[in-house]
Nucleic acid binder design. Structure first.
Lengths: 141, 141
DNA sequence: CCGTTATTGTTCATATATGAATAGTCCCGC
DNA sequence: GCGGGACTATTCATATATGAACAATAACGG
């Protein structure tokens, strides 16, 4: 017989594991004065290699625009990003990463890589493959 | 050769899947005027069968006490919970579930069960077992 | 062209969460 | 007994997130 009683438990295990992982990432990023949200914005800007509209950032990071307004407010207060007028569209406001922002992004990515290594180390290869497959199945469903 | 490039991806897949699942749960609970947090408190109170101190609730739900203060504020405003003095300890404040709160807890648990069924249906048995094993490995690490 | 529609960022209200600071209360060692 | 340390809930500041309402601007159809 299978283990029917594990079904509900697994869902909560998934939520719990993700929560713990998030806490771990936030803690690690906190060491360089970043959060997952802030690093996400900086990384998008660095990868794009040019200023992006707040609207575009919100779309890429899957959040609403009002959230990006506040996030960029805080990043600007931190000196990691600058608001720039969009010459092509007067409605639009672009976020440009600063020199300090670029440096911080590198530092943040490094901290994130550490957590990724921890994660990988804690998970035997067979389990990692199985986890990937299971999550893929969930994503399709 | 293994698939080294999947390692980082899996970590983010896990976060993404958990995020999507949480959104789904919140959406479903929203139909009966609840959130995960609120349902968590109500369920603890119903299962305990007696009023619990806010401190105890915070411990059981793994959050800080100031969060519980606010959560119980909102639950009280919703009429789902009542603050009661603890006769045995004047520092303590107990949360007592109301009749309406009990009814709502049942409704919320029902909505949650629906999501659990969806979850189970989206995940082939083999994947569910593999997922459980992988999450267990993560928890131990 | 010009009016309708869509888009953009911001503001506000709200929900959830943390952590520091505070006031009240309890309890233990002496 | 009582004084100091531990525990209680609350308040405040802050971070993150959503969604509604709004003003400015763009874009498009006729």
């Amino acid at each position: 017989m299978a283990t029917p009683s594990t079904a509900p438990e697994v869902m909560f295990s998934l939520l719990g594991a993700a929560h713990a992982l998030e806490d771990r990432i936030e803690q690690q990023l906190g060491q360089v004065g970043l959060s997952m949200s802030k690093l996400g914005v900086l990384t998008q800007l660095v990868e794009a290699g040019e200023p992006l509209a707040l609207s575009e950032l919100a779309a890429r990071l899957s959040c609403v625009r009002s959230n990006m307004t506040q996030l960029v407010d805080r990043l600007e207060a931190d000196g990691l990003v600058r608001r720039v007028d969009d010459p092509a569209d007067r409605r639009s406001v672009l976020a440009a990463v600063t020199r300090l922002g670029e440096e911080r992004q590198v530092a943040g990515a490094h901290e994130l890589a550490k957590v990724r290594e921890e994660f990988t180390a804690a998970l035997p290869v067979a389990d990692r493959v199985a986890l990937a497959r299971a999550l893929a199945a969930l994503g399709k469903g």
